[in-house]
Amino acid sequence: NKFNKEMRNAYWEILHLPNLNEEQKNAFIQSLYDDPSQSANLLAEAKKLNDAQA
C-alpha cells in the first residue's frame, strides 16, 4: 500500500529532523496517523519548520 510506505518514510524522516523538539515531532507524527494521505505534505511542512529553526 502506497500510503503505508509514504507514511513510514515520512515518519522516519520527521523523527530524525535535528531542529524539531519532541512536541513538534509528536504533532507531525500524530497528523501522519490521522491522515496518511497527507504524508508528503506533512513531511514538507516538517522540513520547512526544521529549516526555519536551524
Rank of each mutant, 00 (worst) to 15 (best):
N50P: 01
I29N: 01
N26F: 13
Q53R: 04
N26R: 15
F28D: 00
A40E: 07
A52Y: 12
N1V: 05
E6G: 01
L49H: 05
Y33N: 01
S39T: 04
L15K: 15
K48R: 11
K25R: 13
K48H: 12
F3H: 14
N9T: 15
Q38M: 12
D34T: 14
P36Q: 06
L15W: 11
A44H: 06
N21S: 12
A27L: 12
S37V: 08
N4A: 02
N4T: 05
Q38I: 10
K25Y: 06
L32M: 04
W12T: 04
A10N: 02
D51W: 14
S31T: 09
N41Q: 07
I14T: 01
Q24R: 07
D51Q: 12
Y33I: 06
E45G: 12
N21R: 06
K48A: 06
N21Y: 10
N19I: 06
N4W: 15
A54G: 06
L15V: 10
Q38G: 07
E22W: 11
D51I: 12
H16R: 14
H16T: 07
Q53F: 09
N1H: 12
E45V: 13
I14L: 07
D35Q: 10
K2T: 05
L32S: 01
L42D: 02
H16E: 02
S31R: 14
S37W: 07
F3G: 14
D35F: 12
L49E: 07
F3A: 11
S39G: 04
M7V: 09
D51S: 13
F28N: 01
Y11W: 10
K25P: 00
E6S: 03
E22M: 14
K48E: 07
F3K: 13
N26Y: 15
N26D: 06
D35H: 13
D35L: 14
N4F: 12
W12D: 02
A52R: 12
L43H: 03
K2E: 15
A10H: 02
L43M: 06
S31Y: 11
P18E: 06
K48S: 06
Q30N: 06
N26Q: 08
E22D: 06
L32H: 00
Q30V: 08
A27E: 07
N9G: 03
L20V: 09
A10S: 03
S31A: 05
D35W: 10
A27N: 08
A46R: 00
K48Q: 10
Y33D: 01
L15T: 05
A54R: 02
Q24P: 01
Q53N: 11
K47L: 06
E13G: 15
W12H: 04
D35G: 08
N21V: 13
A10M: 03
I29H: 04
K5Q: 11
L20F: 03
